[in-house]
Design a protein around this nucleic acid. Structure first.
Length: 875
RNA sequence: GGGCGAUUAGCUCAGCUGGUAGAGCGCUUGCUUUACACGCAAGAUGUCGGCGGUUCGAGCCCGUCAUCGCCCACCA
């Protein structure tokens, strides 16, 4: 074998191994009823997306779990896909078209969609390429796209079924209009942001007139009612002034009329409504039902007219009510002009700075305009009820648990879901209109014609992206066809996701899954923490603090990035302050593994042909210790992965490899007594360790595993370490631990003596310590051993009693210090045991443990006092 | 306005069902020890946010306050 380079070089390994894995089809699985199913449906990234750290924190765990379950022998598949991302994609397309002087409309729908398909086919693959670099191993052959024909037909089927069941309806409701994306968005896609604004106090003059003169000469002098508002531009559409029914200030005014400024061509009445807070502002509120959610509700309660004054471009429109010269102005222009007019009329009484929550479109950042519009909705309550049941009886479980309560509360207060979007890229509504205005809902145009004749026009709207992603866990498996995939893999065991899409996505999958398959689509929902920068700020392009995972890979390798990321995940935390240093450390860790491999390969003995342990009686103390530790580590890693505790799993394998295997076991094999067994045990342990590491660091584990004795062609499909095959010897392990402590003590003494490395100390070892242990002690502590009479009962105590020779002044100081420490421990422990309440109330095993500790301290103290006496306790 | 989370060594964080406070980084000292300086060895560092309670015993349980963060919500 050619000599390995001193440093591990991920670049020369990763792409080569990945290609081999993918070409060999190791990630592909067909449903196999003879093995337990395991599947993760990849949350489909947007076709527009590029890999970012969020993918590192949520998708890496998916890869880890899939690889782990595959190694456990399960029929494990990670099913990838992409989302057509209606609004996001359309925004990009429209921008690109505009750059070429074109628009949606100039192309026409058909041509536009052609362009869109081409674009998505070209860009859609980009993130998958990045996933390959990250070492992710989904079943690429099964990749799906939310607009694939089969998935689209599932969408139509669900729409029609919900419509026929009365759960989808069309109605004129107040919706969230995004004037930039030129579409409605659902409540879940609206953010609230505190912004600085202005609160204006405006007087609406009282009137008894029925007809209005063109000019009111002394309008400012008229008595009126004062209201506070942040949105004066909507006053053109006011249809009432509301006060609280118990507000004495306004009792006499209820039922009276006021003029609507600044046009003063219309009068509206003063009404009483419980929703008004008398404490806020003036205690009177203007009611604009078409442009505010609260006002809309008031409007419904009082059967007020609901004229819209803002159109789909958020410009003032006179289509439904007179708006005078404000027609055509933008929201901002209208506001300015109206304020100016009010000021001129003397009706603007006050303007003061005011900070308040404003609705923002999550997707475009545009200020949402509440509009009254004819749209399609899903009636959510009947869908939410079964989902709540499923959560409450434990059919769906959240990790961490607390997110479940959030889920529950959202479902309890669920509101109807606006699903129609005024964009073209997406699933067009399976809805047609006949010339007489009646509508037909059908899965295909053919069927629609059968029901509604030949003169149909299709509704131009498309569905909310989340409508199709809500079907993802079963549509990707072939639903509504009864495929073997669906039969075997549905429902899945776990969904891994970020917490920001629990409502947008997770809740809807649960509801739709229950509705259409009768089962919750996944049993566990693992919620990954959000990733922040080192200062706790959100990572964003504009802040310039975003870390690109591909840069991390470039610098440290994909394995190191994965390990660095996973080690920062903690089960209960809701955020991770990503620390790049962790990736660097992980690179160093990989180098450590690499050099352990080099050490093994450089030993004079040749590697055994197969992975096999020497017979038990041949194993050395160190062998038995490291095997015992390996056993423990395998159990810990498995347990951590089983509970989705990726950080602990990563830490467990990390500290085993570095701090136990490399720091101690590998050093122990340098003792002459280890010659006979060391190659076999070293390769056995490292082979196992690489399998434990493989889900986390797929590349280096494969590279090392292939170099050592192994069974099979690839670690990808190798079996997970079987605890039954790793022998445990607790007694030998504890002797080794005693030896380790003694070695540390002696090294400490060496440092204190400033002993040059080559100079050896002499250590007096009681003869009840077996020669192999004594020899190991000598090797690890760089000391010479001389035998002295037996001491202490057990081997461990004999080891503890071993003493290095050193100048008496130094020894005396050390013994004194040790004596003081022991006396204080004995004092503490003795006091505790003397306390009757402790002995009476504490658990018996705790008391017994305390007694045992006290006894050990006392024996040790006795020995130290003895030593002091021997060397002459002069102080 | 409701709900949730965090507060432990200079920094980032572990601490299982309460039983003598841990890791890594950083820092100090010494090392070309025949795998690794992306390394090895040794060392220093804490009124576990404040107060009160439960308990024989609290970083851990309960209450309360403070600070920071997140989510939900129609206060114009």
């Amino acid at each position: 074998m050619a000599e390995l380079p001193k440093n591990y070089d991920p670049k020369s390994v990763e792409s080569r191994l990945y290609k081999r894995w993918e070409d060999a089809g190791y990630f592909h699985e067909d449903p196999d009823p003879s093995r337990p199913p395991f599947i993760i449906c990849m949350p489909p990234p947007n076709v527009t997306a590029r890999a970012h750290l969020g993918h590192g924190s949520t998708y890496t765990p998916m890869d880890v779990l899939t690889r782990y379950h595959r190694m456990l022998g399960e029929n494990a598949d990670w099913l990838p896909g992409t989302d057509h991302a209606a609004i996001a994609t359309e925004a990009v397309l429209v921008r690109e078209l505009a750059a070429k002087g074109e628009s949606r409309e100039s192309l026409g729908r058909e041509k536009y969609l052609e362009v869109a398909w081409k674009w998505s086919a070209q860009t859609g693959g980009a993130i998958f390429e990045q996933f390959r670099q990250l070492g992710f191993g989904p079943d690429w052959q099964r990749a799906r796209f939310t607009m694939d024909e089969q998935l689209s037909s599932a969408v139509r089927k669900v729409f029609v079924a919900l419509y026929r069941d009365g759960l989808i309806y069309r109605g004129k409701r107040l919706v969230n209009w995004d004037p930039k994306a030129h579409t409605t968005v659902s409540d879940a896609e609206v953010d609230h942001e505190d912004r600085d604004g202005t609160l204006w106090r405006i007087r609406y003059p009282l009137t008894t007139l029925d007809e209005f003169p063109a000019v009111f000469p002394a309008i400012a002098a008229l008595p009126g009612i004062e209201v506070a508002t942040t949105r004066p531009e909507t006053m053109l559409g006011d249809t009432a002034i509301a006060v609280h029914p118990d507000d004495k200030r306004y009792h006499d005014l209820i039922g009276k009329f006021v003029l609507v400024p600044p046009l003063l061509q219309r009068k509206i009445s003063i009404i009483a409504d419980e929703s008004v807070d008398p404490e806020f502002g003036t205690g009177a509120v203007k009611v604009t039902p078409a442009h505010d959610a609260t006002d809309y509700e008031i409007g419904q309660r009082h059967k007020l007219p609901m004229p819209s004054v803002l159109d789909l471009n958020a410009r003032i429109t006179g289509a439904e009510i007179a708006v005078g010269r404000y027609e055509g102005m933008t929201r901002e222009e209208g506001r300015k002009a109206i304020i100016a007019a009010l000021r001129a009329q003397g009706l603007l009484l006050e303007e003061k700075p005011y900070r308040y929550a404003i609705a923002i479109s999550e997707r475009t950042g545009e200020v949402i305009e509440p509009l009254l519009s004819l749209q399609w909705f899903v009636n959510m309550k009947p869908l939410a009820e079964p989902a709540l049941q499923a959560y409450r009886d434990g059919r769906v479980r959240f990790v961490p648990e607390r997110y479940g309560r959030t889920f529950e509360q959202w479902l309890e207060n669920i509101r109807d879901w606006n699903i129609s979007r005024q964009i073209w890229w997406g699933h067009q509504l399976p809805v047609w209109y006949a010339p007489d205005g009646s509508l037909v809902v059908a899965e295909t145009e053919e069927e629609a014609r059968k029901l509604g004749g030949d003169q149909l026009t299709r509704d131009p709207d498309t569905l909310d992206t989340w409508f199709s992603s809500g079907l993802w866990p079963f549509s990707v498996l072939g639903w509504p066809e009864k495929t073997p995939e669906l039969a075997h893999w549905y429902p899945s065991q776990v969904l891994l996701t970020g917490w920001e899409i629990i409502f947008l996505w997770v809740a809807r999958m649960v509801m739709l899954g229950l509705r259409f398959t009768g089962q919750v689509p996944f049993k566990d929902v693992f919620v990954a923490p959000l990733i922040f920068d080192a200062k706790g700020r959100k990572m964003s392009k504009s802040l310039g603090n975003a870390i690109d995972p591909l840069t991390m890979i470039e610098q440290y390798g994909a394995d190191a990035f994965r390990m660095g990321m996973l080690r920062q995940l903690r089960l209960e935390s809701q955020e991770v302050r990503f620390n790049e240093k962790r990736c660097e450390e992980a690179r160093n860790f990989n180098n450590k593994i690499w050099n352990a491999l080099r050490y093994i390969l450089a030993l004079s003995e040749t590697l055994p042909p197969a992975m096999q342990l020497p017979s038990p009686e041949k194993l050395t103390l160190a062998d038995k210790w490291i095997l015992t530790r390996l056993h423990r580590t395998a159990a810990d890693v498995s347990a951590a992965l089983d509970r989705y505790d990726f950080g602990i799993a990563a830490d467990a394998i990390w500290s085993f490899v570095w701090y136990e295997f490399c720091d101690w076991y590998l050093e122990a094999t340098k003792d002459l007594g280890a010659r006979e067994t060391r190659v076999a045990v070293l390769s056995f342990v490292l082979n196992h360790a690489m399998r434990l590491l493989h889900p986390i660091e797929p590349f280096i584990s494969e590279e090392v595993w292939l170099t050592l004795p192994h069974d099979g062609d690839t670690i990808v499909t190798a079996s997970w370490p079987d605890l039954a095959e790793i022998p445990v010897d607790a007694q030998s392990a504890s002797i080794f631990e005693a030896l380790r402590k003694k070695v540390e003590q002696i090294r400490n003494l060496r440092a204190e003596l400033s002993l040059p490395p080559r100079e050896r100390l002499t250590v007096k070892v009681p003869s009840n310590v077996p020669p192999d242990a004594a020899s190991l002690l000598a090797t690890l502590a760089a000391a010479d051993v001389v035998a002295v009479p037996p001491q202490g009962g057990s081997i461990s105590e004999g080891i503890a009693a071993a003493e290095a020779q050193a100048p008496t002044t130094i020894l005396r100081a050390r013994y004194k210090k040790e004596e003081a420490r022991l006396r204080s421990e004995i004092e503490r422990s003795g006091r505790k045991l003397a306390d009757e309440r402790f002995v009476a109330n504490a658990k018996p095993e705790v008391v017994a443990k305390e007694r045992e500790k006290l006894a050990v301290y006392q024996r040790e103290l006795e020995r130290i006092v003895n030593m002091l006496a021997q060397i002459g306790d002069v102080g």
